[in-house]
Amino acid sequence: MAGVLSGVYNTLIRSNGVFLSTIFAGAFATEILFDTGSNAIWNRINKGRQWKDIKHRYMDAGEDDE
């Protein structure tokens, strides 16, 4: 445990620039992960109700006309 913690400290926290970059990258990664996951759950709950689920019916019909 102590070895892991000191490893984290030495690699990520010791240098200010690396620490700041870690925070920024972590924020971006967390947001992307959270958004992707929550959107996936949302789309599963509302499967078949949203426009993107039904638009293929009308998009295909439109392309046939052209």
Binding site: I45, N46, R49, Q50, I54
Partner: peptide
């Protein structure tokens, strides 16, 4: 947690 049913909207 439900959206509109967009087929019903149409």
């Amino acid at each position: 947690l439900k959206t509109y049913d967009h087929a019903a909207l149409r």
